[in-house]
Design a protein around this nucleic acid. Structure first.
Lengths: 231, 231
DNA sequence: ACCTGAACACCGTTCAAGT
DNA sequence: ACCTGAACACCGTTCAAGT
């Protein structure tokens, strides 16, 4: 089982063409926090959490190695900002002020999960990071919908956190196991050798062929059944 | 908002006393995988994920800086083994073959969460790591109990993963927010300035005073209500 | 105000060598 | 078989300077 880290050693050299060239020399634009964060997201998508190095990020921006530090305190901040930038949410108009609270909750939480799975690095980052405006916006919206659906004021925080916990767990698990499918196959094969020790999960092939999306929706339904009183 | 990393600069110097001394020179024992892992857990408990450095670990073992690499492939492996070592589980005898399946599930899952909260670094590590024997043992047991409780074979994997997701989400959230209480307070204070933007979660004080344990049990009950058919 | 390269401190890991 | 220090490659960040 080789270490998963290993540098990708990718070929694309972002070296700017010789400045004398008449070609558009890529990235004349000045640095800015927005450009830095957008490029950080690109880099994270391409190379994962371990692939984000300050020097590499600067390179990709066509900037001198250490220029970033004028715009950003440190690498942690880059993570914080990249994460929140990926979690923006706009409700589709038909769900605004709709009486269908369950549909509204489902839409927002499934979108949340989908957004994070589109940027798998976000799943490992979210739990440790500061809550940015987009994340807070989702929590606010969730609270508003649940309150409107009849959840008592005293149960509201508990309901919000339960759903948060569920979404985080499902998303983090999915993002990581998805990312390491070979590991799962290998693990399931190891299980086969140990079928006396783990007969049940060997029989059901727990580590293979799981319907993550369906599982997610089902569990969410069960949670909502319990959390929100019927009328 | 200072970076959370900062070296702890702790004082306890584990330098072995001069070898000529008559005192028991601490750690005459040879290195062994068990000692390495046990000490890694100590270090992780004391200093967190970022505090585990190979040199420091060797130091603490009274061993030469690079000796570890004979026993262990790399740092990743240390994480894998430390994690699984902390997740052993033995059912109390009264729950073995008991008809009280809900009690058995609750005991195992609450113990799982408690074990991880006792070693908060484990919460951030688990989702990315290989599944060791103790983790697999818990999944096997969970499958066995649920199957005995009447969950259909085709629903078994989904039920197991739902519970896994829920436990992971709740534990990771708790471990991280617990660890950074000041951040939560600061965030809630920031919310107060933005009460037009986030009126609901500002009103309910979402980021403060949450009953994590109660929330965990309630949600678990709701999930089990849905996952396990009544008779 | 904004950007830069040189330099520092630190850390995982390899290697050639010791017993 | 088991342990070791020196050395390498790499990376975040500081600093003194440049424009």
């Amino acid at each position: 089982m080789a270490a998963k880290r290993g540098g990708a050693q990718d070929k694309h050299q972002r070296k700017a063409a010789p400045a004398s060239s008449t070609e558009k020399p890529r990235s004349e634009q000045p640095l800015s926090l927005e450009r830095i964060i957008a490029t950080a997201v690109e880099l994270l998508d391409a190379e994962g959490v371990d692939g984000l190095k300050m020097r590499r990020l600067a390179d990709r921006l066509g900037a001198g190695a250490m220029s970033l530090y004028w715009h950003v305190d440190n690498k942690e901040k880059v993570f914080d900002l990249a994460l929140d930038s990926v979690l923006a949410y706009r409700r589709p108009s038909h769900l605004i002020e709709s009486p269908n609270w369950r549909g509204a909750v489902f839409h927002m939480l499934e979108d949340w999960r989908a957004s994070m799975l589109r940027h798998p690095w976000s799943a490992s980052l979210l739990p440790r990071r500061a809550l940015g405006p987009n994340i807070l916006g989702r929590l606010e919206l969730l609270g508003r919908i649940l309150s409107g659906a009849g959840v008592a004021e005293k149960d509201l925080n508990g309901a919000i956190w339960s759903l948060w916990n569920y979404v985080m767990g499902a998303t983090i698990t999915r993002a990581n196991f998805d990312h390491s499918d070979e590991d799962m196959v290998a693990a399931q094969q190891r299980l086969a050798h140990l079928s006396e020790q783990y007969p049940t999960i060997e029989r059901t092939r727990l580590l293979l062929d799981n319907d993550w999306d369906g599982t997610f929706r089902k569990g969410l339904d069960f949670l909502l059944d319990g959390l929100v009183p019927t009328q």
